[in-house]
């Protein structure tokens, strides 16, 4: 098998049609050169469409994937700095689930429309985006989905929380593709017990999945610019992601 990684890539902000046909900003990164590629929709974490998420998007392109990250806060804060946009979105109650699904559908369609697409698209999300990656995979026809420590797939959010997130484990039956879940044993949201409950639902419905819980890691262990970073868990996590997407998305 040839090495799909490439040093040459192109990355840029673009506009795409999101939920309801709304034009929203996205960050598109694609490998240059010949060949067809699988696509990855990167779902940003609650702090927003920031430098770290764009770096992750470029990383997928460097590994041979067409990658796009929709700015989920574009409607509330077009053109704003990512931290100001996140603050505005939080104050407004967060991203409604229906709108998230529409925006991911638009991002997936934008990837499939590229001449170099092989027709396969998956999702990956971090933190709140982990839950949203699972939600998208239960709502749209996808080829693979990765959930990195998404809270409230299982479990009721704390009382009085104004954000619009609720448990979605009841959607498991509709999961359209294989799921890779990456979690930390020290995390409380989701807790190891909640990850166990998710696994029970996946098994019950006969879904294809692999869930990994890394010892000594808590929430956000992939975030290299935060104290939560755990290099051992992050490095092994990336290996799991390359193997999983390599199996389900890569190829011509």
């Amino acid at each position: 098998m040839t090495d799909p990684r490439t040093e040459a890539l192109q990355a840029e902000p673009v506009m795409i049609a999101g939920h309801g046909g709304d034009q929203i900003e996205a960050y598109l990164a694609q490998p240059l050169g010949d060949g067809l590629h699988g696509g990855v929709v990167v779902i940003h974490h609650m702090p927003g469409f920031d430098e770290g998420t764009k770096e992750i998007t470029r990383r997928f392109a460097a590994h041979g994937y067409l990658a796009i990250c929709p700015n989920l806060y574009w409607r509330e804060a077009p053109g704003a700095a990512s931290d100001d946009a996140a603050a505005t979105a939080r104050a407004n109650g967060g991203v409604p689930d229906e709108r998230l699904v529409g925006d991911v559908a638009g991002a997936a369609a934008a990837l499939k429309a590229l001449d170099s697409s092989n027709g396969r698209v998956g999702t990956i999300g971090y933190c709140s985006g982990g839950r949203q990656s699972f939600l998208a995979a239960c709502s749209l026809p996808l080829d693979a989905a990765v959930d990195c420590y998404g809270a409230f797939i299982v479990g009721i959010p704390p009382e009085g929380m104004p954000l619009r997130v609720g448990p979605i484990v009841h959607l498991t039956e509709q999961l359209s593709c294989p799921l890779l879940g990456l979690f930390g044993s020290e995390d409380q949201f989701p807790s190891p017990e909640q990850v166990g409950e998710l696994e029970q639902a996946l098994r019950h419905h006969g879904k294809t999945y692999e869930l990994h819980t890394f010892p000594g890691a808590g929430h956000a262990f992939f975030a290299a610019d935060r104290p939560a970073y755990r290099p051992d868990a992050a490095n092994e996590g990336w290996q799991r992601i390359w193997a999983f997407f390599g199996q389900h998305l890569a190829g011509t």
């Binding site: 609650m46 939080r90 104050a91 709140s128 704390p158 009085g160 929380m161 104004p162 997130v165 929430h219």
Partner: peptide, 9 residues
Amino acid sequence: MCTYLTDTL
């Protein structure tokens, strides 16, 4: 964890 805990006023 991502707490989501938010109060607005």
